[in-house]
Amino acid sequence: MTTLWDTTGSAVVKELAAQRRTGGAVLSGVALTLIVVADESRVTEAEEAATHAAEMHPCRLLVVVRRQIDAPVPRLDAEVQIGGRLGPGEAVVMRMYGRLGLHAESVVLPLLAADAPVVAWWHAAPPEQLATDALAVFADRRITDSSMAEDCLAALRTRAIDYAPGDTDLAWTRSTGWRAILTSTLDSVSGRRGAPVQVHGGRVTGDPASPTAQLLAGWLSSRCGCAITVEEASRTPGQSGVESVVLTLDQDEEVRVHSDRKGGAVISQPFRPDAAVPLPERDLGDLLSEELRRLDPDEPYSDALEAATGVTGLAERPSQREYVWFDPAEAENGNGRPRKRAAAARRGDGS
């Protein structure tokens, strides 16, 4: 690893090329460029998660830490490494001071892997409007986490208002285990009957303030064509914010999936004994790795987000974003209005 203090973007590019030549490394088989935007207080856990994801999905890892935006002098400190603590590939950790943090794309763009998709992940509270961050404008896929906001439900609605195809949320990823169990359970009921099952209603029991619980209920509502509510659990739910799901079926039948708090869930359905299935708590690296498996728009997520927030027409929105300049200093003075700038959503077309 090489640390460059008070450096420039050009020096970082040269150092990365030099390490590649010295180590005999060849950039091949890289699936994507992963840009991680993290607060200084969360850099360690973000790096651990990104390292795990990089082991599953070969990528060039670029970590952006915006520090002291109000610093009087712009400055860039960078760590450049290949095959080090951040996984087997190429990684650059950049700490930006002063107004350089508002123009992080000027340093990041030359470091993107050629002809590879770009995924941006905010391990921090994302901007209310992603287009105000140029890193979101040229990314093919954008990952946020509504559960990190002070008001999770307000953040979920903000994500719906600002949604563009290619967006996703780790609060949605946390519901994957529940969705898989519910899908297989309903398929089992359909197989027993020899006909598709009809869901007439149901409820998700857990934390009503949990974005995962709300998105799970939204997904069920969109798929079943009926209202699925979120009700408060009698005890504190687990990491996902979901304690149980109960679905009312036709023919006066009911299906129930309940967390056992031991890394599993119990399925109760008519005419069959209760069954235990694994439902482990997942760490951040697993969640991020799952989201890197797909680079196309996540339509089930947009359907769930629509149903959970009431904001419609998400899937019909254009996937490309137009860059909107936003200066926090001007905002503090009462003059800060986001201003659109001509910019294409694809890297290399300007930012």
Rank of each mutant, 00 (worst) to 15 (best):
A91R: 04
T22L: 13
P273T: 04
L112D: 07
D349H: 12
D151K: 04
A217F: 11
V137H: 03
C59K: 00
I228S: 12
V93R: 06
R346M: 11
A344P: 01
A343K: 02
E45W: 08
V246N: 02
R75V: 00
S222A: 15
A113E: 15
V65D: 00
R85H: 08
L186Y: 06
E291Q: 13
V197C: 11
H52T: 11
P211S: 14
S146N: 11
H103R: 14
D140E: 14
P318W: 09
R193F: 10
T185N: 06
G23R: 11
E290V: 10
V36W: 04
Y323Q: 09
N333R: 14
I161G: 01
A134T: 06
L62S: 01
A131F: 00
A343T: 07
G23V: 04
D167R: 02
E281M: 04
A25E: 09
L182N: 05
L288I: 09
Y163C: 04
M148P: 01
G83H: 09
W219P: 02
R339T: 14
G225V: 06
E128K: 10
E254G: 02
V108I: 15
D77V: 00
T176M: 03
D145M: 06
I161D: 12
V266Y: 01
D298N: 14
C226E: 07
G166S: 07
T173V: 11
E232F: 00
R157T: 12
P278S: 13
A113V: 12
T8D: 10
E322K: 02
Q129C: 07
G87L: 06
D296Y: 09
V107K: 00
P88D: 14
P273F: 06
L186S: 07
F138W: 07
V107I: 14
A91T: 02
T144P: 00
T2V: 10
A171E: 04
V73K: 13
K14F: 01
D252Q: 13
